[in-house]
Amino acid sequence: MFTATPRNRRSYRVQNVARAAFFLATVALVIPVLIIVATLAVKGGPAISWEFLFTPPRDNLTAGGIMPALVGTIWLVVVALLASVPVGVAAAIYLSEYAPDNLLTRTINLAIINLAGVPSIVHALFGVGAFVLFFGAGTSILAASLTLAVMTLPVVIVATRESLQAVPPAFREACWNMGATRWQTIRKVVLPNSISGILTGVILEVSRSAGETAPIMFTGATAYIVFLPQSVMDQTMALSYHLFYIATQQTGVPEELTFGVALVLISIVLLMNAVSISFRVYLRSLKKW
């Protein structure tokens, strides 16, 4: 019925070229990730064994395993979570449930954006100036974890706020109308229906803090210590810092070993992310209203 005019044909060609170009951009972004993960897996894979995971390093870090680094990372992450989750969830509750649209709220939101945007090395300087020196925690798990906590606070706040706001306002009003206080409403209706979203954010934070290096390198991480930490006042090895150290500071480390550490680190981080993402997808499939 209609014949394609030259103009039409041309613009369809443009459209197809554009689509192809955007697709190529996407491929260009995705391919490197796959190459990187594959290379790490191929070169680091042979290093991975039970012994690698569960024995301390030997011979000036040129042999042995990564046990203290693995355990240290767990310490750092757990203490960071203990500090940041309560504060982050409280902040998110305030922003989602209470905050009026005023200057203070806008300032808080701007502060959150900036906490996420400040370079990690500046967070490290803050950690040194505040926790290590001023509050006297010294270089310790406590100082390093608190630094991580401040840095990853926006992750918890943003994820929690999002899942709180996904609870329809009508539920809150229904509760208020029955004489429930704001807090009773939050505790009995809003939180139970967003707890899984909050958990998703927490897992994401685990992944974030497990991979960070700069914030911990002057606040609590140390290059070589075979003992496992006994308290939050101890210094500790950490996977991320361990990778940095054996890759740049230590000579004579076999390539396989370094790739092995990188592989373990990226596996932990990507696994946590995958858990968080699949959790989210699963949650979306559950409909409660």
Binding site: L29, V30, V33, I36, T39, L40, S120, S207, R208, A210, G211, E212, T213, A214, S240, Y241, L243, F244, A247, T248, E255, T258, F259, A262, L265, I266, V269, L270, M272, N273, A274, I277
Partner: peptide
């Protein structure tokens, strides 16, 4: 999202070794 999750120390290592 996965791309965003890769820790910077791993990126640095990739820069050095690959």
């Amino acid at each position: 999202e996965m791309l965003a999750a890769i820790p910077s120390v791993v990126w640095g290592f990739v820069g050095m070794s690959i």
